[in-house]
Amino acid sequence: MFLIRAACLLLCVLCLAACDRLPQSYPPPEQRQPVAGFNPGPDAMMVSMEDSDADPVIVKDIYPGTGIPWRWTKQEPTVKVLVFSTESVKFSADFAIWDDSFKTTGPLEISFLVNGKLLDKIRYTTPGKKHFEKPVPADWLAGNTEATVALSVDKLYIAPRSGDEYGVILSRLGLKP
């Protein structure tokens, strides 16, 4: 009986020792300062076809890279970019129309799309290097979210032997602040 009493007493003491009321109210914490987004630089929203890390942002219709600074596209090469700023943002694309394919396709009409919306449509009547740049309306974009940027080529060159389809030779595509 003594042992039982002693054990009960010990348990009560242990239980009391365990009582440690958790605080229920707190002072205001250290105030966080707004975190400026990382300094993106002028090319942060551009996708360069020579970059090895371009693959994750390619959505469709761009052939795999081979270590050279351009890649062939199909009909609607599309990339995703993270929009850091919505003000004064321009669509920007550097591409080329191959001389030999141009002989087959003739002039190309290329549409420029942001989030599926048509920004512009241009008819290219000569082959060679091209650069397109045009402001994107601010309300087409939302900050800190992804946007899709795409070209849409009206005619494709079909390789005679393989039957593969080719649009344009793409170097860079995206948005510029």
Binding site: L22, P23, Q24, S25, Y26, P27, P28, P29, Q31, R32
Partner: peptide
């Protein structure tokens, strides 16, 4: 936010400071 303020909540008083830390992600 005065250090003399006392903040509490019901339930979950232990995380109440996250409504007073000026952070948009907490």
């Amino acid at each position: 936010r005065d250090p003399g303020w006392r903040l509490t909540a019901h339930p979950n008083p232990w995380e109440v400071q996250m409504a007073f830390d000026n952070s948009p992600v907490t």
